[in-house]
């Protein structure tokens, strides 16, 4: 850090903040926003989650148990003629699905991207060929149809980003009303790893003539398999 530059900017800022006309700045920080009522009733979390995600052209699959969930993932892999896939390693649901796919002869590619050098480029290229990415999720958000994915050891960012199809496996009890609820339940959620992403539907753009098209940089399809 360039200390002089920092000192100079900081001094200017302190003078400015004190001098400027900032409506409503006299009050202290207002604290956490308190909602008058819950956005989504607990009984309808999954219905609302499915409704929201499906309205964005995402797919929601219900599975009574792990076995059924794995079968759903296999069917999605089949439907897309998947030969290789990328998957989180430390999630028990995902591990079940990965093992099953591997038993069927599909190739699981390593998630690890080398830090530097030609290995970095080749590992990226290798991962880039996967047709399917399978991840878990920390939370599902009912009011927006989102899934919240924190990265960490065994839980890469690329599985939910590079392949054209992304499958999320999540247990029913991980679906909460909103992002605010998720943060309240897990206060270090946002900063526990170097990346947290809230994914709300498939990648999309409306830049040309305000016409929607999907899968512009991220996955074209997102499937959420809810277990329980």
């Amino acid at each position: 850090m360039n200390t002089t530059e920092r000192e100079r900017m900081r001094a200017a800022l302190d003078r400015a903040s004190a001098a400027g006309f900032l409506p409503e700045a006299a009050a202290p920080h207002p604290g956490r926003f308190v909602q008058a009522a819950d956005t989504v009733a607990p009984a309808v979390l999954i219905e609302r989650f499915a409704h929201e995600l499906e309205s964005l052209a995402g797919h929601v699959h219900r599975a009574p148990d792990v076995e059924a969930a794995v079968a759903i993932v296999k069917r999605i892999a089949d439907d897309h003629g998947t030969r290789s896939f990328l998957a989180w390693r430390d999630d028990d649901l995902v591990r079940e699905a990965s093992s099953s796919l591997e038993r069927d002869g599909l190739v699981q590619k390593p998630q690890n991207v080398a830090l530097a050098g030609p290995e970095r480029v080749s590992s990226l290229a290798e991962i880039g060929t996967c047709a399917l990415g399978i991840t878990g999720a920390d939370f599902g958000l009912a009011d927006t149809g989102s899934v919240v994915l924190g990265c960490g050891p065994g839980r890469g960012r690329l599985a939910s980003l590079l392949p054209p199809v992304h499958v999320v496996m999540i247990r029913l009890e991980r679906i909460v009303a909103s992002l605010a609820h998720a943060l309240a339940a897990d206060p270090t959620l946002a900063s526990r790893g170097s990346n947290l992403v809230v994914i709300t539907g498939p990648s999309r753009t409306a830049d040309i003539e305000f016409t929607l098209s999907r899968g512009v940089h991220g996955p074209r399809e997102i499937h959420v398999v809810v277990v329980g």
């Binding site: 830090l115 990265c151 960490g152 050891p153 065994g154 960012r157 539907g201």
Partner: peptide, 22 residues
């Protein structure tokens, strides 16, 4: 309701993490 990707980056890649910039 939310944009498709709300991407929160907290520091560079950490020890043990498999991807992301160093």
């Amino acid at each position: 309701k939310l944009s498709v990707y709300t991407n929160i980056v907290t520091g560079p890649r950490r020890d043990g993490e498999v991807d992301g910039p160093r």
